[in-house]
Write a protein that binds this DNA or RNA. Structure first.
Length: 762
DNA sequence: AGCACGCCGACT
DNA sequence: GTCGGCGTGCTC
């Protein structure tokens, strides 16, 4: 008997092993220890059959070393789901099984977004550095390893592996040093820098008193719309068959109340509930309500848990000790065996897409899981993703709408301020318009609260030289440095590799003395609000503030308790919070993001504006929003102001159809990294040529590029890009073709990432 | 991801 | 020659 085993090695696909004579074959989903090259690893059995199959030559096959479980460790339907994920996203079984297994079995590897490897020099390492500095040891001096030790000797708290990489120290070098005992590697919860609020990473416990309690929620009578929605969803859930429903409910319409009651109903019927949220720390109210409703029959997965705690939660779920799992995207693989309902809350949120291999979208995996389990999948949002809404309109999904707020509270009144007029009247340096200033003053006077959004971190966007017109750029990445920090300690920082430097007195290029800081971010706005409203208590909520203060939850609690009057921040503030005393939302530069060439720029802007405006007027007092922009006529701004989702949907769909973008085509984005741009382009060209040749007659997909990527250099590497556009029916074939083509080019494969259904093509 | 192999420049 | 660094290929 032969078994296919998924081993936790990213690059590897399924491997075939022989079950020794007289040994009972392991169950699908069981853990087995197998030989792999010179080492032994623990893998998961995915398939079992009598013959080895033609794809592997018999003399390669080795026997299993050990069978660890006599029943499935990973439930068989989760094994199946993992295989689907690997296939769909072209990720390889190895990379995918790593995402599915609990952290302990992944070999000390927690959710990679939340922790990072921190490298510290050991005494032995420092000693070797000293001896290397002595005469006669020249050889080592310029080596990468030596550079690494030099850097580490100046960083007693250690450096992140990613930081070392940006100085040209690869993971391999670090591994070697670690083996020599010169450095130690630890996993620490350190903020990873790239990709702004999308994957907001916070380590707060979700049990703060935010939002209404369970008693309040369940004690409240549902509105007519809620009752309607609930009964429709109940009906779908009770059918015991697979359904997807888009729950389109405006901000404040009470979607959570519907989820809780629906979940309770499903639990009653003996099936389990999977509740996916974008980020638990950002939606503490939802987590609290479910915990109160389900008591100890709920498992909460959040980034504040240690590996051990996560592992315990995983075991509890696997043992069937919980009825409801609430967690972020990886919870879609929770080892439940009788799922009856999967809720994807804020389904449009970008954090459902994993931005590293396997690059899956948890909403889409959830739908497949629901299909396999015969479960109801509810996609909830005030601003559904275009793809989801299209499926709802076509009848593929059910559509359930809630267009009114609870207690018939009005949606906020929205005003647009054209900043071109404002500049003409007030000068070019104005940040807060007269309209917004007045509105803020009024809130302070009335002791109400306000939120001010600017989706851009830092103090100034760039350091600009008036003499040579150059900017201060990152030495490792093709971006300009962003100014951060308080006046005395202000530094220029790269948002991608974390490089930072003191701001020089003269231009490093032309030595000109006229360096100017241009553009502004949340830090500058915070200062400005303080200056204009001396009586107001002002705080800032963005990734930097949360990192420094160490805790998002305390900030949110203080705001909720009324200890803060004005909260300035990035899109972090826009996610599902319920702040009843907020009656004003101001948006500075609503067009941040519209300037990007990405095909989703309009959709993102519309979603962000609608969501943030929705933070206002959730209590007894009505809310208002003031949106400042340079493009007041842009449709995503106009329609967000009118909170007219259907109109936006139709408008945007027209654009997507004309430009051949999703949901009309499927995209596959291929990025190739290399030491020089010409090498990156050359390798990408090889891939593109093969792809084009493979398609010659059918015309079922188009290959665009290669071209230098929008971020042409990142962490010292050059990047080129190919975009494949496939018709819906050719998607599968095109993906397979891409995977095959890339893996046929050995050296290149390692430096290539394939992103199926990318959220962004930049 | 690891780990072995093999090439290459710098040294006794 | 020998040593260590670093790029490349392979893992059933």
């Amino acid at each position: 008997v032969f078994v296919s085993v998924a081993v936790p090695v990213p690059q590897l696909d399924l491997l075939t092993y022989a079950v020794p004579e007289g040994v009972r074959p392991p169950a699908i989903g069981a853990r087995v220890v197998v030989p792999l090259g010179t080492r032994a690893v623990t893998g998961i059995v995915v398939d079992s059959r009598e013959t080895a199959g033609p794809d592997v030559s018999p003399d390669l096959i080795k026997p299993l070393k050990q069978i660890l479980d006599d029943r499935p460790f990973v439930p068989s339907d989760v094994v199946e789901l993992a295989q689907w994920t690997a296939e769909y996203y072209g990720a390889g079984a190895g990379a995918t099984i790593v995402a599915v297994l609990p952290p302990k079995t992944r070999g000390n590897r927690a959710d990679a977004h939340k922790t990072e490897r921190v490298v510290t020099a050991t005494p032995a390492g420092l000693a070797s550095l000293a001896s290397a500095a002595a005469p006669g040891a020249e050889r080592k001096r310029g080596s990468t390893a030596n550079v690494a030790l030099q850097l580490l000797s100046r960083a007693p708290d250690g450096l992140r592996a990613a930081d070392l990489k940006s100085h040209g120290v690869s993971a391999g070098v670090v591994a070697r040093l670690s083996k020599l005992g010169y450095v130690s590697i630890a996993r620490a919860r350190v903020e990873r820098d790239p990709f702004a609020g999308s994957a907001a990473t916070l380590r707060t416990s979700p049990d703060l008193k935010a939002g209404p309690t369970y008693r309040e929620v369940v004690g409240r009578r549902l509105t007519e719309e809620q009752t309607c929605a609930l009964s429709r969803l109940r009906e779908l859930a009770r059918s015991g068959r697979f359904h997807v429903a888009v729950l389109h409910g405006v901000t404040g319409s009470g979607k959570t109340e519907v989820y809780v009651r629906l979940a309770a109903d499903v639990r009653q019927s003996g099936r389990q509930v999977l509740m996916l949220v974008p980020e638990i720390a950002l939606t503490p109210a939802v987590a609290t309500i479910f915990r109160e409703a389900f008591g100890d029959r709920v498992a909460i997965q959040h980034s504040g848990l240690s590996d051990g705690e996560r592992h315990d939660q995983w075991q509890r779920i696997r043992n069937g000790d919980v009825d409801l799992v609430i967690g972020t995207r990886s919870a879609v693989f929770a080892p439940c065996e009788r799922v009856g309902l999967i809720v994807v809350d804020e389904e449009h949120d970008a954090s459902y897409k994993q931005e590293e291999t396997p690059r899956y979208h948890a909403r889409d995996v959830a739908i497949v899981r629901g299909q396999k389990a015969g479960a109801l999948v509810v996609l909830g949002s005030a601003t559904p993703a275009l793809e989801s809404y299209a499926n709802a309109l076509s009848g593929k999904y059910d559509r359930v709408t809630m267009m009114r707020r609870i207690l018939d509270r009005p949606l906020p009144a929205v005003t647009v301020v054209d900043m071109r007029g404002e500049f003409a009247a007030e000068g070019p340096d104005v940040i807060l318009s007269r309209r917004l200033r007045e509105a803020l003053e009024l809130r302070i006077e009335r002791r109400e609260q306000a939120i001010v959004l600017l989706n851009r971190r830092g103090f100034a966007t760039a350091v600009f030289c008036r003499q040579c017109a150059g900017t201060l750029d990152c030495p490792n990445c093709s971006v300009s440095l962003v100014v951060h920090g308080q006046e005395a300690s202000r530094r220029a920082r790269c948002h991608y590799c974390n490089f930072s430097m003191r701001i020089p007195a003269a231009c490093p290029t032309c030595a000109g003395p006229y360096l100017e800081q241009t553009g502004y971010g949340t830090q500058r706005v915070e200062d400005e609000v303080r200056r204009l409203l001396p009586a107001a208590r002002v705080a800032r909520l963005d990734r930097d503030a949360v990192r420094r203060k160490g805790s998002l939850s305390s900030l949110l609690t203080r705001f909720r308790d009324g200890e803060i009057d004005v909260l300035v921040g990035t899109q972090m503030m826009a996610k599902g919070h319920d702040f009843p005393r907020v009656t004003l939302v101001g948006v500075i530069s609503a067009d941040v993001g519209l300037g990007m060439a990405d095909f989703r720029a309009s959709e993102r802007t519309f979603q962000l504006l609608t969501q943030v405006a929705g933070r206002a007027g959730r209590g007894d007092e009505p809310g208002e929003a003031v949106i400042q922009t340079l493009y007041p006529e842009h449709y995503s701004i106009q329609l967000a102001c009118r909170q007219d989702y259907p109109a936006f949907y139709h408008r945007e769909l027209t654009f997507r159809r004309a430009m051949r973008y999703p949901p009309f085509v499927s995209l596959v984005n291929i990025t190739v990294r290399a030491k020089t741009m010409s090498a990156a382009l050359r390798d990408a060209e090889a891939i593109a040529d093969r792809l084009r040749a493979a398609d010659e007659s059918q015309d079922s997909y188009r290959v665009l590029g290669p071209a230098p990527a929008a971020l042409a250099r990142l962490r010292g590497e050059y990047r080129s890009q190919i975009l494949v556009k496939a018709t819906k029916s050719a998607r599968r074939m095109a993906c397979a073709q891409v995977v095959e083509t890339v893996s046929a080019l050995p050296g290149v494969a390692r430096r290539t990432t394939v992103d199926v259904d990318p959220l962004s093509v930049l």
